[in-house]
Design a protein around this nucleic acid. Structure first.
Length: 788
DNA sequence: AGCACGCCGACT
DNA sequence: GTCGGCGTGCTC
């Protein structure tokens, strides 16, 4: 007898375990690990995934049920990804099915729907008379009453159907079914018939219309019985209307060649080495990636490329498309679920051998990986902030080991942890120190805003920056300005009583958005219309403080009498707006591009010669041990946007913390200097890479419950952890209340804890079993990227 | 999650 | 007397 271990498709911790089923004799020969199946579960039938096939079983054999049905011909998950799912669920303390859902395209997620089935005419009529027909939805009290009678009399039954979100897309096509025809009097029809007959496969109707044959014309041939209609599967191709110019291999310089050779050696030898490619902006990392991928392809293997957020780096994706053509699948957040499903199938069926995408692209269903490349490895987007809280680099290491292939982590400003590993020899360090195109070095200056205020300039633009902006506008060159704060004003302040409007759910000040005339919470999305009087004392002298991009856009327009493109969350949340704004900026040679940190990434415009950071301190003051690192990386990155081509570039940082080492080292473009100083801080403060971290966040609407829960976590950790570990807290989270929930946090810092995973699992179980009903939640974040 | 089972109040 | 409220516990 053959049995299957199955994970059921119900996202609830209570059923996040392995259930066992019989494989019916008739199915044995084509049932495989990774198959999607339907299984009887309690009184219903649900979807599940086979994770193991075996001869023996742990559960009571008399209670076993057989698998009802296989849902696919080929398994949707390869054994590697089944193994990986289970590993991730265990490691990051999450439900199995949550992980499987993040690995598979959303289109394969089950969608249960209850429908009514009538068994006599009166019952069927009754069902159809309801506005929603057979769907069990929006039943009124009376309808429910009537329905009960039908069900009791067994004239209507309820059935659950499992619907797929997206099926392969179909389109109408036609093909010829006769050889001889009589179309002497209809030359256009004759021409069309020959066209259809000549094709080896059915011709898509839409292609015929494109070529100028009307639907009517096709239908004439159909009516006369010369052609037949059929439905064929088609691919949604998001790049359909794009033309890619072939991109040829570029000659590597000595440094690039040396690094490339090492990577090639690893690929050829099938070693799971991890390379840290530390290359300054413009040193030609991408060309090394391209050629390394080419090696894998030549060896008959596949490649994964991860980028922080693909919509921010269209130039990169285009370049890969140009080099490798149809071999490339591109997955990004702008695609519809159907488009994503098609790109996923392209990879799975071996029609694409390179896949480019953001974080979740690490799960691309390849079978024989030759290389995994993670560009801008220091970016926080590689860590998922929802469950499962996985980090793409950590997942990459597991996949690399399984596939015996190398990983390349590329960055101009590697994360402190990665560089430390490279220094220790855990990673192999590769360096690119020369710019591929010869350029004059960037000229970076710092403006002390405190000085500026003392001199009487209270504007957000310093005199120095103002002069430089005017100079560029006169020369018709372009300027990029960064302000890491969206909205119009940071908060609303009453000048009489000092009252600041705060979010009723989040204990954080509301941001004023002028265009929408409202106050918004940037954490939970709460909105209220702005009032002209103070909510606390009815005073009318309310003002707005703390400039945001919306207001600075106005200021720039007024001061410089020029066009400004503003790019922030509010102007780019609509699909395609990102690219559109950048195109406008480039094509129309708009003087100023103003934006939040999203502009720091990937921009490469030859006419940009001045970059200004209006407030370099916003990130410095975050209550997070990585605040300096973030600031340094952002400043380095944004500075790289200036003077990328022939024209010399200039950069201005405006700050109130002129002496801060993050700003100093960024000004001198000194990564190593920053790294050394930051490492000293991490060592003294006992943070990563000297310690690993786990962040526990306990939340509930009731403060008393939060305190009780936090106490329980603290006590458990104190008892179970060794004395080499440090437990910080419990303390209120930096944003004490978010979405009506009070939040407390505990940070565990450890070097080695062999029993940690069991303790985490026990804590998670305990919260589920005893506190869930109260609405008390525990979030466990392994290696958090943000401590807030 | 969803469904069955089970034990208490207000209605044909 | 029954219907139906939702608390509890189980699903291979």
């Amino acid at each position: 007898m053959m049995y299957a271990a199955i994970i059921v498709d119900i996202p609830n911790k209570a059923v996040s375990k392995i259930f066992e089923y019989e494989v019916p004799e008739s199915m044995v020969s084509f049932t495989k690990v990774g198959h999607r199946v339907l299984v009887p579960f309690g009184s219903r039938t649900i979807q599940g995934f086979i994770v193991e096939l075996k001869e023996t079983v742990d559960y009571d054999t008399t209670k076993l049920k057989p698998i009802a049905k296989l849902l696919d011909i080929e398994p949707v998950l390869k054994p590697e990804l089944v193994e990986l799912s289970i590993h991730i669920a265990d490691y990051y303390v999450d439900n199995y099915i949550n992980v499987i859902e993040t690995i598979l395209p959303a289109a394969l997620k089950s969608n249960y729907k209850k429908v009514l089935v009538g068994h006599d005419d009166a019952a069927i009529d009754w069902i159809n008379a309801r506005p929603k027909g057979p769907e069990v939805k929006y039943l009124t009290k009376e309808e429910l009453k009537e329905l009960r009678v039908f069900i009791k009399e067994e004239r209507i039954t309820e059935e659950t159907i499992i619907k797929q979100h997206t099926a392969p897309k179909k389109a109408l096509a036609v093909y010829a079914i006769v050889d001889d025809m009589n179309l002497e009097n209809a030359p256009k029809q004759l021409e069309l018939f020959y066209e259809i007959q000549a094709a080896s496969e059915p011709t898509l109707m839409r292609n015929l219309t494109e070529r100028g044959y009307s639907n009517h014309l096709v239908n004439e041939l159909y009516k006369k019985g010369y052609i037949e209609k059929t439905e064929v599967e088609i691919e949604r191709d998001p790049f359909k209307n794009k033309v890619f110019e072939a991109d040829k291999k570029k000659a590597l310089n000595a440094e690039q060649q040396e690094n490339f050779n090492q990577i090639k050696q690893s690929i050829d030898a099938r070693q799971d080495d991890i390379f840290l490619l530390h290359g300054i902006t413009g040193s030609g990392k991408t060309e090394v990636y391209l050629q390394a991928i080419d090696v894998a392809l030549q060896n008959g293997q596949e490649a994964i490329l991860l980028v922080p957020e693909i919509s921010l780096t269209p130039q990169m994706a285009n370049r890969f498309k140009s080099r490798f053509g149809d071999d490339v699948a591109v997955l990004h957040s702008g695609l519809s679920p159907g488009e994503k499903y098609d790109e996923w199938r392209k990879i799975k069926e071996g029609r694409a051998r390179v896949s480019i995408g953001a974080r979740s692209n690490i799960f691309a269903p390849f079978e024989n990986l030759g290389i995994i490349i993670i560009d801008e490895e220091h970016e926080t987007t590689y860590k998922q902030n929802e469950r499962p809280h996985y980090h793409a680099v950590e997942v990459a290491k597991v996949r690399a080991k399984y596939n015996r292939c190398p990983i390349v982590l590329g960055s101009a400003t590697p994360s402190i942890e990665s560089y430390a590993r490279a220094e220790k020899g855990v990673y192999k360090l590769l360096e690119l120190t020369k710019r591929a195109v010869n350029q004059t070095p960037i000229d970076i200056s710092v403006v002390d805003m405190a000085e500026e205020h003392k001199r009487g300039n209270i504007s957000i633009i310093s005199d120095t920056l103002q002069d430089k902006i005017i100079e560029r506008i006169e020369k018709e060159e372009q300027i990029v300005l960064l302000l890491n704060r969206r909205g119009y004003a940071n908060f609303q302040l009453c000048q009489d009583c000092g009252h600041v409007s705060t979010c009723p759910h989040c204990d954080i000040s509301l941001t004023y958005h002028k265009r929408k005339q409202n106050l918004m919470c940037h954490y939970c999305g709460y909105e209220e219309t702005v009032k002209k009087v103070c909510a606390a004392c009815d005073s009318t002298s309310v003002t707005f403080r703390g400039l945001g991009t919306e207001q600075v856009e106005e200021i720039l327009r007024d001061t410089f009498n020029t066009d400004v493109v503003r790019m922030d969350f509010d102007t780019t949340k609509q699909k395609g707006m990102h690219e559109k704004l950048l195109n406008t900026f480039e094509r129309e040679n708009i003087s100023i591009l103003l934006g939040t940190q999203m502009i720091a990434k990937g921009l490469d415009y030859p006419n940009v010669t001045l970059v200004g950071v209006l407030n370099a301190d916003t990130m410095l003051n975050l209550p997070d041990f990585r605040a300096s690192e973030r600031t340094f990386q952002l400043l380095m990155q944004v500075a790289g946007r200036a003077g990328r081509h022939q024209l010399p570039g200039e950069v201005v940082f405006q700050t109130y913390n002129k002496e801060h080492y993050a700003i100093q080292f960024a000004t001198n473009q000194d990564y190593m200097g920053f790294y050394r100083e930051e490492m000293d801080f991490r060592k003294v403060a006992r943070y990563a890479p000297y310690y690993f971290h786990v962040l526990f966040t306990i939340s509930s609407e009731r403060m008393a419950d939060v305190i009780e829960g936090a106490h329980h976590v603290h006590q458990t950790l104190s008892q179970q952890m060794s004395n080499t570990s440090i437990i910080v807290g419990p303390a209120p989270s930096p944003i004490e209340r978010m979405n009506k929930q009070y939040r407390f946090q505990i940070l565990l810092k450890y070097k080695r804890e062999s029993g940690l995973m069991d303790v985490l699992k026990a804590l998670d179980d305990h919260f589920f079993e005893t506190y869930k009903a109260k609405g008390l939640l525990l979030k466990i974040d392994i290696n958090p990227s943000l401590i807030m």
